[in-house]
């Protein structure tokens, strides 16, 4: 299927026309075709069905398909737009486009908000923030006492929750990020501007004449 490089082109489920994807994202048609080269590699690393399963996503991120990580789970879930447990090519391109340097900051801010709104309540709540801090500490093998964690969470919350209602809404989040732009640092991948350089083989597999 999508795992076999062949001129007799048969695409996996979820494949979408690069021309359409380019029109809807920050990528060019060539970029999308180069991303397809990466997608083929990731989606056939364990289960050879041309879809990215969570284990394959974890393998690409951590070189370990069994590594549990709260944040990788959240990213996977946000990429999985159809919520069917796998990332299809169209979902992969549309989601990665958020991380493109040319994508408006407002989209990055909104994505980061959804990322941190663990329970999908439309707010980032104090308990969620503490849970994420504890997950980060656990992942990093760092130890901070509960008092210190509480202090960090309280201080951050007091700065972000400007309305003082015990939760951070999208508007407060956007204002907080404007005051702390470093929070969006990992929402931009400069490499995406040069994705065709990383996967030059897209030219061989292009289906678009003037790509």
């Amino acid at each position: 299927m999508g795992c076999v490089r062949s001129r007799h082109i048969k695409h996996p489920p979820g494949y979408e026309d690069p021309v359409i994807l380019a029109a809807e994202t920050s990528f060019t048609v060539s970029d999308v075709e180069a991303l397809y080269e990466l997608f083929k590699k990731l989606s056939c690393s364990i289960i050879k069905d041309g879809l990215i399963h969570k284990e394959e996503f974890q393998l690409a991120l951590f070189r370990n398909s069994n590594k549990e990580n709260l944040f990788a789970d959240r990213i996977f879930d946000l990429f999985d737009l159809k919520r069917n447990g796998v990332i299809e090519f169209g979902e992969f391109v549309r989601s990665l486009s958020i991380f493109h340097p040319n994508t408006p900051e407002a989209e990055k801010i909104a994505f980061a908000f959804r990322l941190y709104d663990l329970r999908h309540t439309g707010f980032i709540e104090r308990e969620e923030l503490k849970e994420m801090v504890l997950a980060l500490l656990n992942e990093s093998d760092l130890y901070l006492s509960d008092d210190v964690v509480e202090t960090i969470v309280d201080k951050t919350f007091s700065q972000a929750d400007t309305k003082g209602d015990g939760k951070i809404d999208p508007e407060e989040w956007a204002e907080f990020v404007k005051r702390n732009p470093s929070l969006l640092r990992n929402m931009t991948l400069p490499y995406l501007k040069d994705i065709t350089m990383g996967f030059p083989s897209f030219v061989m597999n292009s289906e678009v004449n003037d790509a």
Binding site: L38, L42, A60, L61, F62, N69, L70, F71, A72, D73, R74, I75, L96, F99, L115, Y116, L129, M132, V133, A135, L136, E139, S140, L144, V148, T151, I152, V153, K155, T156, F157, Q159, A160, F176, N180, S182, L183, R185, N186, L189, Y191, I195, G198
Partner: peptide
């Protein structure tokens, strides 16, 4: 540590470093 921004701390997670996807 009391001066740390919790979100700044969280953003250092390896799980949020998607650049790794592009490493050969």
């Amino acid at each position: 540590p009391a001066l740390m921004n919790a979100f700044e701390l969280i953003s250092t997670s390896q799980g949020l470093n998607l650049g790794t996807l592009f490493e050969k």
